[in-house]
Design a protein around this nucleic acid. Structure first.
Lengths: 246, 246
DNA sequence: CGGCTCATGTAAAGGTCGTTCACATGAGCT
DNA sequence: AGCTCATGTGAACGACCTTTACATGAGCCG
């Protein structure tokens, strides 16, 4: 079994050259497989082909590696939410919906990052950079909420954007955490997490007075979902995010 | 250091007498202190005054202890949600709100249970009893949603109760998980988690067509009778869940 | 009352981890 | 060519999880 290590050594020499990056990648894979709790520093080192002590040249301890991953996660998260938001194009509500979907997509497609960010026990304030990254990601939601709040139809009280942002975040995180990942996904559901979240957000927005028409996740092209920022006078249209009344 | 063990032995004899229960209690305390990840089987044994191997007479392994705790947690959770629901008294909406508060209160007051139930990585289906307990707890929310759905004002489409229940659960879990516990609570908020969730649920319910007046837990009842509910010190000022429009 | 049995506890040992420390290596600069 | 310092190694420590062989004694049976 030792030839393996010798071979590695032969291949890459005494110095790895890019160990820090290799460790981050290895950890990412391991977390995706076994969760942040199951991931071990030693495994990451083995996977990178170095001794168990080597990682300590690049990370103070296991927790620092974990919080580095969480930080990167928040950065990618911000990028994806930003892209989804696309500065509110083509219209605010549609873009807002897209952000919600992007949230779930990230949780689903990047389980390792999501795990490190929200389920690993790494405190948000473990690290200034981590905290900053986390806030930048949240600020995407916050900015979107700001724009949405500014659109409240006349006659309706305008909700604080911060509160809206927190609400949306809690919905997205709740759905992702309960129904959309790992063993949590084993709960039997009458609909997909995406549909669940979409309906939830639409109902919520309607509760705020937004004129939301019925339009689940369907793609069947209807008229432009919401005419560009023109609050139609209609109250609560028939139908609803969940389909036809019974 | 060994006199300690000897003394324990002297106090209680070779056989502990109630080790299983003692281990559960010890684990509960340790989880509350250091989280499910930080809790160790050995520590629990030490705390109960037995050798490290003794717990294996009562639990197959560490995970089984954890899932036992999760199961008990779901049982107590169900009890508290049921009590809060109180079969919909005095009126459905008020009782529903109370369930939401009870959810957060449980997450806050029983961090060890909540941790074991939702954040420990124990899969819900690790154990048939665990899964059953989890479903019973959810069924309280589901039953409440059912009653609420039956109340939808005429002319409004009736949402599926199951979906409502899942929405409410995701909101409560999202708020609890992000803002109401441990280091997550370190995020700075413009309002308390309780207020946040309450506003969120009210807005959601309004989105479903419920005639929610713009003032959550207040006592001065308007159309819906809200007699003597404890004001619960909610700091939500008049003017709706979010305050006055600007 | 005496003895048997089996649930319950103990000690010891093997394996894995996280972490530290003294030492080895070699890449890059002078 | 030689020096230096970042980077990697191996060995060692203590803690944990888990298994195994053995010890204890509570409860039952005759």
């Amino acid at each position: 079994m030792s030839w393996r290590k010798e071979q590695r050594r032969a291949e890459r020499g005494y110095h790895h050259g890019n160990l820090k990056e290799a460790l981050l990648q290895a950890a990412l894979g391991l977390i995706a497989e076994k969760g942040a709790a199951g991931f071990t520093f030693a495994d990451a080192a083995r996977m990178a082909g170095v001794s168990a002590a080597a990682p300590y040249r690049h990370f103070r301890d296991r927790d620092e590696l974990l919080s580095s991953i969480a930080q990167r996660g928040f950065e990618q998260f911000e990028a994806r939410l930003s892209a989804a938001w696309d500065d509110g194009r083509p219209d605010t509500v549609t873009a807002f919906e897209r952000v919600g979907k992007a949230y779930l997509a990230f949780a689903r497609e990047e389980p390792a990052f999501y795990n490190a960010m929200f389920e690993s026990g790494v405190p948000v304030d473990a690290n200034a950079a981590l905290q900053a990254a986390s806030e930048r990601a949240f600020n995407v939601i916050r900015a979107a909420a700001e724009r949405l709040a500014a659109l409240t139809p006349p006659g309706t009280p305008r909700p604080p954007a911060m509160m809206m942002a927190l609400h949306i975040w809690s919905m997205a995180h709740g759905v992702a955490s309960l129904f959309s990942r790992g063993d949590a996904a084993r709960r039997k559901l009458p609909m997909s997490p995406d549909e669940l979240l979409e309906a939830e957000v639409l109902i919520y927005l309607r509760g705020l007075g937004f004129p939301i028409d019925r339009r689940p996740p369907a793609k069947g092209a209807q008229p432009p979902p919401v005419p560009p920022e023109a609050p139609s006078g209609s109250g609560v249209p028939p139908g609803g995010p969940w389909g036809k009344p019974k």
